[in-house]
């Protein structure tokens, strides 16, 4: 059902955890649909230096969270803002159709964290 890349990110998720001195935090999803993703950012000079995540959810939710952290690290805020959920799914060689809507929220969580960073630093 899942691609090898999804299973790789699910079983060895990258960047799990929290950043204590994060300057941007975003959370999306809700418990009733079974997915909550929380992203922590450390932004310096407009560049995302570090990203960590915590996720409650299915295999796709955990794998997309892990993938989005890899895709975001080292990018500028502007570059990160154009990352889409679809691009994250594509980087994982695709997700089962049923998961595209409910569990593919990692880019949204990243954008929420960036929004939070901008609010704190404006």
């Amino acid at each position: 059902m899942y691609t090898d890349k999804v299973m790789d990110h699910f079983s060895n998720p990258r960047n799990v955890g929290e950043i204590e001195d994060a300057n941007g935090v975003g959370e999306v999803g809700n418990a009733s649909c079974g997915d909550i993703m929380k992203i922590f950012l450390k932004v310096e000079d407009n560049i995302i230096k570090d990203v960590k995540f915590k996720t409650f959810g299915c295999g796709a939710a955990i794998a997309t969270s892990s993938m989005v952290t890899e895709m975001a690290i080292g990018r500028t805020i502007e570059e990160a803002l154009v990352l889409t959920n679809e691009a994250v799914a594509e980087a994982l060689d695709g997700l089962p159709p049923a998961k595209m809507h409910c569990s593919n929220l990692a880019a949204d969580a990243l954008h929420e964290a960036i929004k939070n960073y901008k609010e704190q630093n404006s």
Binding site: M7, S11, D35, F56, G57, C58, A98
Partner: peptide, 29 residues
């Protein structure tokens, strides 16, 4: 924690069980 990720971890150890999670029921609830 969520049921499907638990089942996938079980499966990696060769354990077959089932879950009432939305993700395994094929619906959103």
């Amino acid at each position: 924690i969520e049921g499907e990720s638990l089942l996938l971890n079980f499966d990696m150890k060769g354990i077959a069980a089932s879950s009432g999670s939305a993700c395994t029921s094929g619906s959103l609830e």
